[in-house]
C-alpha cells in the first residue's frame, strides 16, 4: 500500500473541451506541491476531480492505496481529502467559533445529535479554542464571519479545513483577494501546517508558491507540461515562455 494520494491517467471532458488529459500525480505524506498554469489550464477542475465535486471520465484517484474515484465529495472528505475554495466559502452568518465547530462535529460523528446543545462537548470546544489560538482568531470567536476582513476570512477557512484533520489538503488560490499587506498572514499560516500533511496548492502568486512549495507541477490545457523543483521550473524556458514570462525573475 502506498501512502498518500496517487492520481493515474485522469481524463475529463465537457463535450468537446478536454479539461483533464492523462494527468498523473503523486502526493506523498508531507509533500508540498504547487499546481500552476495559465488561466483556463484546468487547475480548479483538477482540484474538483480530486475532491469529488467532479468525477473523471476515466482514470483513478487512490488515497493510501484505496481507490476513491467513485466516492462522493462528502465520503472523500471523511477519507481525508479536504479543500479550500478559490472564493472564500464559509458560513458567513455564523460566528467564527460556530464555523470551526461544524467540521469538528461532522468529523467526530456528532453532527446528527438531535438533543443537547451543540456546544456541550467540552473536548470539542477546547479543540476549537486551540485551533483559533493557532490562527490568532481567538479574539474574534464570537464575531460573525461576515464582519471579518477578507484576509481573516481566509484564515477562518484554512482553520475550518484543518479542523477536519485531513491527510490531503488542496488549497485553491489561498491568497486570492487578500491585500498584499496582509498576505504574510496566509504565508505564515501555510508554513505552520502539520509536517505530515500533504498539500497541493493552486496559486498564481509565484512569490507564495516559491516560498511554500518544494515541487511545482505545471498544467497547460488540462495536461501536465512538467514537474520539478522551484529552481527547475524557474529555469525551464518552455514554462517561462508559456506562463512565468516576466512574472518571476529568478
Amino acid at each position: 500500500m502506498t501512502a498518500g494520494l496517487e492520481i493515474r491517467n485522469l481524463y475529463k471532458s465537457f463535450g468537446g473541451l478536454k479539461v483533464a488529459q492523462d494527468i498523473n500525480l503523486d502526493l506523498k505524506s508531507g509533500d508540498r506541491k504547487a499546481l500552476i498554469g495559465p488561466n483556463g489550464a484546468g487547475k480548479t477542475t483538477f482540484a474538483n476531480l480530486i475532491t469529488g465535486i467532479l468525477h473523471p471520465d476515466s482514470g483513478s484517484v487512490r488515497l493510501n492505496g484505496v481507490d476513491i474515484s467513485g466516492f462522493k465529495e462528502s465520503k472523500r472528505v471523511k477519507a481525508g481529502v479536504a479543500k479550500t475554495f478559490q472564493i472564500t466559502t464559509l458560513f458567513k452568518s455564523m460566528t467564527v467559533r460556530e464555523n470551526i465547530r461544524l467540521p469538528i462535529l461532522e468529523r467526530e460523528g456528532k453532527s446528527q445529535h438531535w438533543f443537547g446543545r451543540a456546544e456541550r462537548f467540552s473536548a470539542i470546544e477546547a479543540e476549537i479554542s486551540k485551533i483559533l489560538a493557532q490562527f490568532n482568531l481567538l479574539k474574534f470567536e464570537e464575531t460573525p464571519v461576515r464582519d471579518l476582513a477578507y484576509g481573516q476570512q481566509r484564515l477562518v477557512e484554512l482553520a475550518l479545513t484543518l479542523a477536519l484533520k485531513p491527510r490531503i489538503l488542496i488549497l485553491d488560490e489561498p491568497a486570492a483577494g487578500v491585500p498584499s499587506a496582509d498576505s504574510h498572514m496566509i504565508t505564515d499560516a501555510l508554513e505552520r501546517l502539520p509536517d505530515d500533511l500533504s498539500v497541493l496548492i493552486i496559486e498564481h502568486d509565484m512569490k507564495l508558491v516559491f516560498k511554500v512549495a518544494s515541487k511545482i507541477v505545471v498544467l497547460v490545457n488540462g495536461a501536465i507540461l512538467t514537474e520539478g523543483t522551484p529552481e527547475d521550473i524557474s529555469q525551464n524556458q518552455q514554462v517561462r515562455d508559456l506562463y512565468l514570462g516576466a512574472q518571476h525573475e529568478h
Binding site: T51, I53, E73, S74, V77, A82, K83, F85, T89, L90, F91, K92, S93, M94, E98, R101, L102, L105, E106, K110, S111, Q112, H113, W114, F115, G116, R117, A118, L160, T161
Partner: peptide, 19 residues
C-alpha cells in the same frame, strides 16, 4: 442541537457543508 447547527450550515452554504 448539533443537527440544528447543521441545518443552519446548509442554509448558509451547502457547498461548504459538502466540503
Amino acid at each position: 442541537s448539533p443537527f440544528g447547527l447543521v441545518a443552519r450550515g446548509i442554509h448558509a452554504s451547502p457547498e461548504r457543508m459538502r466540503a
